[in-house]
Amino acid sequence: MENMKYAEELVREFLFFRGFTSTLQSFDKELATDIGKDFHKDKIFDLIFSLYIPKFQPDNLISLLTFFKQCFSSSETLLISTLSKLEISILRYYIVNCVKLGRNDKIIEFFKVYGDDLMRKDQDWMIWSGIGYMKNPNLDPLFRVYFSKEWFDALNLSVRNFLSEIFNGNHILC
Rank of each mutant, 00 (worst) to 15 (best):
residue 174 C to Q: 08
residue 118 L to Y: 10
residue 137 P to M: 08
residue 40 H to W: 14
residue 4 M to D: 10
residue 134 M to I: 03
residue 124 D to H: 12
residue 116 D to S: 11
residue 26 S to Q: 09
residue 35 I to K: 11
residue 147 F to T: 13
residue 81 S to H: 03
residue 156 N to Q: 14
residue 155 L to I: 09
residue 66 T to W: 04
residue 17 F to W: 07
residue 59 D to Q: 07
residue 78 L to G: 03
residue 71 C to Q: 14
residue 110 F to G: 04
residue 12 R to S: 15
residue 160 R to E: 04
residue 84 S to F: 00
residue 160 R to D: 03
residue 57 Q to M: 15
residue 66 T to Y: 10
residue 33 T to D: 06
residue 127 I to H: 14
residue 161 N to A: 12
residue 102 G to Y: 10
residue 137 P to W: 04
residue 68 F to N: 04
residue 108 I to Y: 07
residue 72 F to P: 07
residue 98 C to T: 08
residue 12 R to Q: 13
residue 65 L to G: 04
residue 113 V to G: 00
residue 168 N to Y: 07
residue 23 T to W: 02
residue 39 F to M: 03
residue 6 Y to K: 15
residue 159 V to A: 03
residue 156 N to E: 13
residue 142 L to T: 03
residue 174 C to G: 14
residue 44 I to R: 01
residue 72 F to L: 10
residue 118 L to K: 11
residue 67 F to A: 14
residue 125 W to H: 07
residue 167 F to E: 05
residue 122 D to A: 09
residue 61 L to K: 05
residue 101 L to R: 15
residue 37 K to D: 00
residue 163 L to R: 01
residue 64 L to D: 08
residue 85 K to W: 04
residue 107 I to Y: 07
residue 47 L to R: 01
residue 11 V to E: 10
residue 70 Q to H: 08
residue 102 G to V: 10
residue 25 Q to T: 11
residue 113 V to H: 09
residue 105 D to I: 15
residue 84 S to K: 12
residue 118 L to M: 11
residue 82 T to I: 07
residue 44 I to N: 00
residue 131 I to M: 12
residue 40 H to L: 06
residue 7 A to Q: 10
residue 88 I to M: 08
residue 56 F to T: 05
